Amino acid sequence: TRVETATETAWISLVTALHLVLGLSAVLGLLLLRKQFPAHYRRLRHALW
């Protein structure tokens, strides 16, 4: 049972790390898009919101 708990903890930390990386890359991508293609960014924002 101890090994299972350790594996679960590892999976949870892995998933958390993946979510963090995905969130950060999404934010960075949006910032880059905003900087380089303001028109595209505006259109995207209108489409999303």
Rank of each mutant, 00 (worst) to 15 (best):
T1L: 09
T1Q: 07
T1F: 12
T1M: 10
T1H: 03
R2A: 07
R2Y: 12
R2D: 13
R2M: 13
R2W: 13
R2S: 09
R2V: 11
R2N: 07
R2F: 14
V3Y: 05
V3E: 03
V3C: 03
V3S: 01
V3G: 01
E4L: 05
E4I: 03
E4S: 07
E4N: 08
T5G: 02
T5V: 03
T5R: 02
T5F: 09
T5Q: 02
T5Y: 00
T5L: 12
A6N: 10
A6D: 03
T7H: 05
T7K: 13
T7Y: 14
T7E: 04
E8N: 00
E8R: 08
E8C: 01
E8S: 07
T9F: 12
T9G: 11
T9C: 05
T9Q: 01
A10N: 03
A10R: 06
A10E: 08
A10P: 04
A10I: 14
A10V: 09
A10Q: 09
A10S: 07
W11S: 10
W11D: 04
W11L: 13
W11T: 10
I12V: 06
I12E: 02
I12Y: 11
I12K: 08
I12S: 05
I12H: 06
I12M: 15
I12C: 02
I12W: 00
S13C: 10
S13L: 06
S13F: 15
S13H: 02
S13K: 13
S13A: 05
L14C: 05
L14R: 05
L14G: 08
L14P: 05
L14N: 02
L14S: 05
L14W: 13
V15D: 07
V15T: 13
V15P: 05
T16G: 09
T16D: 04
T16F: 08
T16N: 02
T16L: 11
T16S: 04
A17T: 07
A17I: 07
A17F: 06
A17M: 04
A17K: 02
A17S: 04
L18Q: 00
L18S: 05
L18V: 07
H19Y: 05
H19C: 15
H19F: 15
H19S: 15
L20P: 07
L20K: 01
L20R: 01
L20F: 10
L20C: 07
V21I: 08
V21L: 07
V21A: 08
V21W: 06
V21Q: 00
L22S: 03
L22H: 00
G23P: 09
G23I: 11
G23Q: 00
G23D: 02
G23E: 00
G23M: 14
L24H: 02
L24C: 03
L24I: 07
L24E: 00
L24V: 07
L24N: 01
S25C: 04
S25K: 01
S25R: 01
A26N: 01
A26E: 02
A26V: 06
V27Y: 07
V27D: 01
V27W: 11
V27G: 11
L28T: 13
L28D: 01
L28I: 14
L28C: 14
L28Y: 11
L28E: 00
G29D: 00
G29E: 01
G29I: 10
L30A: 10
L30I: 10
L30G: 11
L30W: 15
L30C: 12
L30H: 05
L30Y: 15
L30M: 09
L31A: 08
L31D: 01
L31M: 11
L32D: 02
L32G: 14
L32F: 14
L32K: 07
L33S: 05
L33W: 12
L33H: 12
L33V: 11
R34E: 01
R34D: 00
R34A: 12
R34M: 11
K35S: 12
K35Q: 12
K35R: 12
Q36H: 14
Q36V: 13
Q36N: 11
Q36A: 13
Q36S: 09
F37I: 15
F37P: 03
F37E: 02
F37S: 13
P38S: 15
P38F: 14
P38M: 15
A39S: 06
A39R: 04
A39T: 09
A39C: 15
A39F: 06
A39D: 11
H40L: 15
H40Q: 15
H40I: 15
H40A: 14
H40R: 06
H40N: 07
Y41P: 09
Y41A: 11
Y41T: 07
R42Y: 08
R42V: 08
R42M: 08
R42P: 08
R43C: 08
R43N: 06
R43Y: 06
R43S: 10
R43K: 05
L44Y: 02
L44D: 10
R45N: 05
H46N: 15
H46Q: 13
H46G: 13
H46R: 07
H46V: 12
H46E: 13
H46D: 15
A47E: 05
A47S: 08
A47N: 06
A47H: 07
A47T: 04
L48Q: 06
L48S: 05
L48Y: 04
L48W: 10
L48D: 00
L48G: 03
W49Y: 06
W49K: 14
W49T: 13
W49A: 12
